[in-house]
Amino acid sequence: MTTKILIAGFGGQGVLFAGKQIAKMGMDAGMKVSWLPSYGPEMRGGTANCSVIVSDEEIGSPIVNTPDILFSFNIQSFDKFEKSIKAGGILFADSSLISKKSTRADIKCVYVPATELASENELTGGANVIMLGKFIKETGLFAKDEFIEHMVSSIPSNKAKLIENNKKAFSIGYNYEEN
């Protein structure tokens, strides 16, 4: 099976980081993975997205044009990529920043007010990890505990606070239920 994921938003929202977590987890789970950023001249503030592919077979093109899963963290990326999601795919949208709803009936739409949840819980910048929590819950692509373990293993152990915050953000997303 091959899962093609596109994660898009503004630079600084942790879009690339979120993609790396999925790719790294996939690699450690023995799968083939690729992670390809769409890079721009700006380091912060511009649009950013990355293509992540997790597969049990050799990966051909690392570019995701028609994602199985789209993470959308701003209205620009929603407008640009929502229509490209494969039928049967899933949209994860940050409803704090995207007021629109998808009109597509052939995809599953998951709306999480990730940015608001992050600031309510004093986890500024944690919207990406909140969304990862929800993504793992919805897709079951990887086991929850294993994913958390992998995610925090890349954080230096002297940054205990950061590890805690990431764990907290993940579980907020994982346990979030839409009304």
């Binding site: 790396k20 993975v33 690729s34 992670w35 390809l36 950023p37 890079y39 570019i63």
Partner: peptide, 10 residues
């Protein structure tokens, strides 16, 4: 090329 330079793989 830019894609190979920037992409990550195991």
């Amino acid at each position: 090329d830019g894609a190979l330079g920037q992409m990550m793989e195991p």
